[in-house]
């Protein structure tokens, strides 16, 4: 594993807002290996979400490069394809589309890859099974508990089989039992499917459970905890 090139290689990325007044990322360098589980912690406003958004190609850095599997993405043209196939995203809040069922939510990213509607439904139901939500395929988000909703979001992140999962405080508003379930689920997927997992969290014990815990402060990576 050590000999391999990193899956995610962030090099000296700077991202500012408000015409340079806010330096959300102030020269971040971070490389993550294939199959690694990295947690990111840090005070509110230190740039954790901005870093994930930059990796997911939702936000374009002012300077610096981001290599994914050796390919530079900040100058890539077809970002939709990259987002749809390479990255699986899980957010903290308002994650699901409220007018779609659990199964339909899981199918949303599959619209961008050419598979038949039948195949799409089949795969969505399998993924819901994987996150232990069989029988709830037709439920709307409002008919699901907070923990169940986040598991639907995890299933959706997996829908196109991405090698990387980025989770931005996916357990932020869950109680500890539901949080644990979601984290266990993500860890299992990381372990069993060899997926690279980057998890932003405020919870110290969750952060400790990662292969590597990264701490951020004021747009920089502060220290790297050894494991």
């Amino acid at each position: 594993m050590n000999d391999q090139a990193p899956v995610i290689d962030v090099r000296d990325v700077v991202k500012t807002f408000d015409k340079g007044l806010t330096r959300a990322l102030d020269g971040v360098t971070l490389s993550i290996d294939k199959g690694e589980f990295v947690s990111i912690t840090g005070p509110s406003g230190c740039g954790k979400s901005t870093l994930l958004h930059a990796i997911a190609a939702l936000e374009k850095p002012d300077s610096g490069e981001i290599y994914i599997n050796g390919e530079e993405i900040t100058s890539k043209r077809d970002l939709s394809r990259y987002r749809a196939r390479t990255i699986g995203l899980v957010f903290q809040l308002h994650n699901l589309l409220p007018n779609l069922s659990a199964s339909e939510n899981v199918q949303v990213p599959m619209y961008e890859i050419s598979i038949s509607p039948r195949e799409r439904r089949k795969r969505a139901d399998e993924l819901l099974g994987l996150v232990s939500l069989q029988g709830k395929e037709k439920k709307r988000p409002t008919q699901l508990s907070g923990g169940e909703r986040q598991r639907v979001a995890v299933a959706r992140a997996l829908s196109n089989g991405p090698p990387i999962i980025l989770a931005d405080e996916p357990t932020g508003n869950l109680d500890s039992k539901a949080s644990l379930q979601v984290i266990e689920l993500l860890k299992n997927i990381q372990r069993e499917q060899g997926v690279t997992l980057v998890l932003v969290t405020h919870n110290a014990s969750i952060a400790e459970a990662a292969d590597r815990a990264v701490h951020m402060l004021d747009g920089r990576i502060e220290s790297k905890a050894e494991d």
Binding site: S80, R81, L89, F91, H94, L97, V108, P109, E112, N160
Partner: peptide, 16 residues
């Protein structure tokens, strides 16, 4: 707006 952001983040093209 937020839903459009999620759709884009999940890989939906502007065309869609």
């Amino acid at each position: 707006t937020r839903e459009f952001g999620i759709l884009r983040a999940l890989g939906w093209r502007t065309r869609r």
